[in-house]
Design a protein around this nucleic acid. Structure first.
Length: 662
DNA sequence: CGGCAGCGCAC
DNA sequence: GTGCGC
DNA sequence: GCCG
C-alpha cells in the first residue's frame, strides 16, 4: 500500500512554474495520494492536507495576496484541515511513514510589515524569540489577520526533524572545561604525529566528557565513563586539578617537539593537507603557513592553494542562521533548474547545532539516479558560480568558469558504477508516468531551459564577471603550476583576510608565485609532487560529492562593520533517490556517531555505508592474510531509503538527529 | 594482541 | 597505491 | 588512546 493512500492533498501552486507544480503533484500521486486541483468546496472533496511549498515560506511577502489567503479561509471554514509545509511530505517519504503534522504546520503570527524594510533583514533576526513560538499552537491555522508572517522553512524543517536544537547554545560552561582543553591539545598532538588511533581515543574521550554536565574530579568518576581508561582518567584528574598539560603529562616531549607538533597541526589546517603532508613539509623545514606560501606555492594542488588562502575562513564556525541563508540560496538555485529536486541541509545543521563547520546540502529527487542528479547539479553549480555566490571548487575545475571544456552529463546512459539496480530500472515505470519528466523529457526540459535563460548552456557561458582570476595567479601563467591553480579556483577577492594571517601579511602572497622558485633548494622543490599542467580534458564528470566554497552577498551577513564576508565550505552531495535514507544518515553524522553505528552493524552481520545497509558476506571485519577482505561480491541490500528502518533493522532505538552527537 | 567505518576522489 | 576529506 |  502506498504511503499516502487514503490521503487527499491540495497542493498550493508554488515555486516558479506550473511545471513544478505538476511534477510535485505527480510525486504525491505516485505515493498514493489523491491530489485535488481545486479547493472549491462545491466541486471538490475535502482534502486531508493542504501542502504549501517551502519556497513560499521563505518569502512571506509573496504569499500575501497570492491566493494562499484563499486556502486559509477555506481551511477556516472547514475546520481543521492542516496546512503543512512540503517538508512534511518529504520527511514522510524519507521515513516511509505518516508523521505527525504538528511541527510542519504553518503558523500565522503577527505580521511585520515586510515591504517597508529592505529584506536584507532576515526573518530570524527580526524575530529573536522564535523559540517560544516553536511550541505548537493548536489553532494556528486560523490567521486572525489577513496578513501574516510565516516561519522560516528552515525552522520548520529543524523542529520537525529533531525538536528544537538542544544545548548547543552555551557550551563554554562545561564543568570539565579545563580537562577538555588539555585533552584537545593532546589529541591534536597525536594527530600531528599521525598516531591516528591514539588520537581517536582522545577524540572519543573528549566527546564523552564534553557531554558530561557534572564535574569529573576523581579517577573513578572519570574511569567510569565509556571510552575512558586508566590512562585518560589519570590525565583528566590531573588536568581538572589545574595542572597544565605540559609538565607532568607530556614530560616525555621536550618543548621543541611540542612546538613542532603545533606547527604540523597548523599546516594540516589547510584543506588538502593531512598529517602525512604536514610531516613531510615540516621535516623539510616548512614550518609555517607563510613558509608554505613563499616556498611551496606553485607546488600546491589547486585545492591546497585555495585552502591556504582561506585557512582562517574555513576554520571558522558558521552560525546556524548563516547556514540557513546558504541553504536558501542553493535550494532556490536547485529549484530553478529542476523544480522537483530537493535540497536538504544536513550535517551539524540538521543535528541542531548553533554553530556549524560547513554547509552540507544533499540533492535528491524522486526516482532520480546519480546521472540525473549530476545533470541537475552541474547546472546549479554554473548558475551559482555565475551569480557570484560560489567562489571556488575544491573538487575540480568548473567548465565555463575555469576554462574550456564541458561536463560529461552522463546523458549517454552508461554511467558506470553509479547506476545501481535500485535506481535505474524504475525509469520505465514511475518515471514514465511523470509525463514529460522521463529521461528524454527531462533533457528536453533542460534544453529548453538553457535556451530560455541562456545561462545554463555551457558552451555559451561567458566567464562570470566576478570570477576573473586573481592577478597573483594569472600574471605568471607561464608556469605550469599556476595554470593548474587557475583551473581550480576562481578567487575573486583578496585571497585571505590578510591582516589576521598568522605570520605574514597578506600582501606577501602576491609575490610568492613569482619569487618562490628562487627560494627553492632543489631538494625541497619536489615535495609536493610535480603537478602537470591541466590540459583540460574534453569532458568532466561531476563527482557525487562536490566540495567548494561559497560566500554570501555583501550585506546579507550580519557581519560586523567592514569585514569582508567569509568564504564558507560548501558540500553538495548528489544522492540517488533509492539511497536517500542511508545518505541522510551518513551525512547527518556525526562522524563519531557513524563510526559507532557501523561497528554495531558489523557486529550484527551487516555492512553500513552511505549507500545502504547490506547483509555482510564476510562476517565481521575479518582479515585474510593480513589484508582486509575487500568485498567485491555484491552483497544483499537490506535497506537504503528509510533512515528509520536502518535503526530498526539493526535493533537500535531510533535517534533523532539532535541526539547523534556521538 | 589486533582492531578501531567505509567510501570515492585527486594525485 | 597513498593521502585526503567526507 | 580504548576495547574485547
Amino acid at each position: 500500500m502506498a504511503l499516502f493512500t487514503n490521503l487527499t492533498f491540495y497542493v498550493f501552486p508554488a515555486r516558479t512554474s506550473a511545471r513544478a507544480y505538476k511534477i510535485r503533484r505527480k510525486v504525491y500521486e505516485t505515493n498514493g495520494a489523491v491530489v485535488l486541483s481545486t479547493l472549491d468546496p462545491k466541486t471538490s472533496p475535502k482534502p486531508t492536507h493542504i501542502i504549501v511549498d517551502s519556497d513560499w515560506l521563505a518569502q512571506p511577502e509573496r504569499v500575501r495576496g497570492s491566493g494562499l489567503g484563499h486556502s486559509e479561509v477555506w481551511a477556516e471554514q472547514n475546520g481543521d484541515v492542516p496546512i503543512v509545509c512540503d517538508t512534511w511530505v518529504l520527511e514522510c517519504m524519507a521515513q516511509n511513514k505518516i508523521l505527525d503534522v504538528g511541527p510542519f504546520l504553518l503558523r500565522a503570527t503577527e505580521q511585520k510589515n515586510a515591504e517597508t524594510e529592505s529584506d536584507s533583514e532576515t526573518e530570524s533576526d527580526s524575530e529573536p524569540e522564535r523559540k517560544p513560538q516553536k511550541k505548537l499552537e493548536q489553532k494556528q491555522l486560523h490567521g486572525k489577520e489577513p496578513e501574516q508572517k510565516i516561519t522560516d522553512p528552515a525552522h520548520i524543517y529543524d523542529t520537525a526533524l529533531e525538536g528544537v536544537r538542544t544545548g548547543s547554545a552555551k557550551e563554554e560552561e562545561s564543568p570539565n572545561a579545563a580537562a577538555l582543553q588539555g585533552l584537545k591539545r593532546l589529541q591534536e598532538h597525536y594527530n600531528s604525529l599521525d598516531d591516528r588511533w591514539r588520537a581517536l581515543g582522545y577524540t572519543r574521550a573528549i566527546s564523552v566528557l564534553s557531554r558530561e554536565t557534572t564535574p569529573i574530579r576523581t579517577f573513578q568518576e572519570a574511569r567510569a565513563l565509556p571510552g575512558i581508561g586508566a590512562s585518560l582518567a589519570r590525565k583528566i584528574v590531573e588536568l581538572a586539578a589545574g595542572h597544565t598539560v605540559d609538565p607532568p603529562l607530556v614530560s616525555a616531549l621536550d618543548t621543541v617537539e611540542i612546538k613542532a607538533n603545533e606547527e604540523r597541526a597548523a599546516l594540516a589546517q589547510i584543506h588538502g593537507v593531512g598529517p602525512a603532508t604536514a610531516r613531510k613539509w615540516h621535516a623539510a623545514g616548512i614550518h609555517t603557513l607563510a613558509d608554505v606560501r613563499s616556498r611551496l606555492w606553485d607546488q600546491l594542488t589547486p585545492a591546497q592553494q585555495i585552502g591556504l588562502d582561506h585557512v582562517e575562513d574555513f576554520a571558522a564556525r558558521i552560525p546556524r542562521e548563516e547556514v540557513e541563508q546558504h541553504w536558501t540560496i542553493i535550494r532556490e538555485a536547485v529549484h530553478a533548474v529542476d523544480p522537483s529536486a530537493e535540497a536538504l541541509c544536513m550535517g551539524s545543521f540538521r543535528r541542531g547545532s548553533a554553530m556549524c563547520g560547513d554547509v552540507d546540502i544533499v540533492i535528491t529527487r524522486a526516482e532520480a539516479t546519480a546521472a540525473d542528479l549530476r545533470r541537475v547539479v552541474a547546472r546549479v553549480l554554473v548558475k551559482l558560480f555565475e551569480s557570484g555566490y560560489l567562489v571556488a571548487s575544491l573538487s575540480g575545475p568548473m567548465p565555463g568558469v575555469d576554462g574550456p571544456g564541458e561536463y560529461d552529463f552522463g546523458d549517454d546512459g552508461d554511467d558506470g558504477d553509479d547506476e545501481s539496480e535500485l535506481s535505474d530500472e524504475s525509469d520505465d515505470g514511475k518515471e514514465e508516468d511523470n509525463d514529460d519528466e522521463g529521461k528524454k523529457g527531462f533533457s528536453q526540459f533542460l534544453d529548453e531551459y538553457s535556451k530560455a535563460t541562456s545561462s545554463t548552456d555551457f558552451s555559451s557561458i561567458p566567464p562570470a564577471k566576478r570570477l576573473k582570476l586573481s592577478p597573483s595567479r594569472t600574471t605568471e601563467t607561464s608556469s605550469p603550476g599556476t595554470r593548474a591553480a587557475a583551473a581550480c579556483t576562481t578567487a575573486n577577492s583578496s585571497p585571505s583576510r590578510g591582516a589576521t594571517s598568522p605570520s605574514q601579511p597578506c600582501g606577501s602572497q602576491q609575490s610568492s608565485p613569482a619569487s618562490s622558485s628562487n627560494l627553492f633548494s632543489p631538494r625541497i622543490s619536489n615535495f609536493a609532487g610535480s603537478k602537470k599542467p591541466i590540459a583540460h580534458k574534453q569532458k568532466y564528470r561531476l563527482p557525487r560529492l562536490w566540495m567548494g566554497a561559497g560566500v554570501l552577498p555583501e550585506g546579507s551577513q550580519g557581519l560586523e562593520s567592514g569585514q569582508p564576508p567569509r568564504w564558507r565550505r560548501i558540500d553538495i552531495i548528489m544522492v540517488p533517490w533509492a539511497e536517500r535514507g542511508a545518505a541522510m544518515l551518513h551525512y547527518t553524522g556525526s562522524g563519531l556517531f557513524n563510526r559507532s553505528m557501523r561497528i554495531v552493524a558489523m557486529q550484527r552481520g551487516y555492512h553500513l555505508s552511505n549507500k545502504g545497509l547490506y547483509r555482510a558476506i564476510v562476517p565481521k571485519g575479518r582479515k585474510s592474510s593480513g589484508v582486509k577482505v575487500r568485498l567485491c561480491i555484491p552483497e544483499q541490500l537490506v535497506e537504503a531509503t528509510d533512515e528509520y528502518k536502518i535503526f530498526e533493522i539493526l535493533g537500535l532505538p531510533y535517534r533523532p538527529p539532535n541526539e547523534r552527537s556521538k
